[in-house]
Nucleic acid binder design. Structure first.
Lengths: 147, 147
DNA sequence: TACATAAGTTGTAATTCGCAACTGTTTCTT
DNA sequence: AAGAAACAGTTGCGAATTACAACTTATGTA
């Protein structure tokens, strides 16, 4: 496997990355006592402050009905608040409720620690390369949509 | 969002990356007419040539029963072959059947094209930085396990 | 005013998944 | 060497997740 060409190397690291990040995401959710999808909804809502069901569905690549039901769960357990948008009453604006805020803070903090530690484990002189390289790469990845 | 610190930048790119790679994986599977899990099983099996159910379960972070059933599906549709390991008959060795080989080649080729194109879209002088940066980062990520 | 479009919800059904129990095989213990 | 423990894999079963389609309500447009 050592005599691979550049694009193969790229793919290999990406595979490894995907796998590890998969573990990370699941652990993150499990530790906070929520499902993966619930976790995603909370994080996206927390970041945007206000968000609609459709927006979430788009971001999470899920059907809006799935998101709607996930939101149900989170509203019922005090994590999320549903509010009709006064400007366009078709929209339901979602924002974090108390429990959701707590979860959000918790998740963000855990992630912050995780990435800080990861960065610190990288030799000082390589950190810039890693960060910038990742930024370039993530920007360049296309969202291919299968016909 | 522009005045973020290094670890925040790292996390942001990682988030973006995860999302895009999620789309990529799903599309990859959908285009080949298989489920995501089936796709993973095929790719892992194709790469290892021979693999056990437990090994797959470990790699894919799934219960062995789930893998066993996914393997069922793939055996039934002519993608996979189950064979008892003669050395230790507890193990079932899996390898690709004809259809599986075809799927595997197809997937690998598509991925190869995708990553080649992605790499080519990155300015020549930055490619080394991206590849090495990604390799370092993916190596450094821990598999944290929630207690 | 009527019609088309959009956001969100709900009915429904299929799929996916994990836990637990079980079978068969190997290895460890005494 | 016999029984116990450990391990790989399968199956029963139930719970959770998901998408599609139909529907409701709200907005925009001809």
């Amino acid at each position: 496997m050592s005599f691979t060409n550049p694009s193969q190397r790229l793919r290999e690291s990406t595979r490894l990355l995907t796998r590890k990040l998969g573990f990370l995401e699941i652990d993150e959710a499990v530790c906070c006592g929520v499902t993966l999808t619930q976790c995603h909804v909370i994080v996206e809502t927390g970041r945007k402050q206000k968000i609609s069901v459709n927006e979430l569905a788009e971001l999470l690549n899920l059907d809006k009905s799935t998101v709607s039901r996930t939101v149900d769960q989170l509203v019922n357990n005090g994590s999320l608040i549903r509010e009709a948008d006064p400007d366009d009453r078709r929209y339901v604006m979602l924002r974090l409720d108390l429990k959701g805020e707590e979860l959000f803070k918790n998740i963000e903090q855990r992630m912050d620690i995780y990435f800080t530690e990861t960065l610190e484990s990288i030799p000082e002189e390589k950190r810039k390369q890693v960060i910038e390289g990742l930024e370039i790469f993530s920007e360049m990845l296309k969202n291919i949509k299968c016909i």
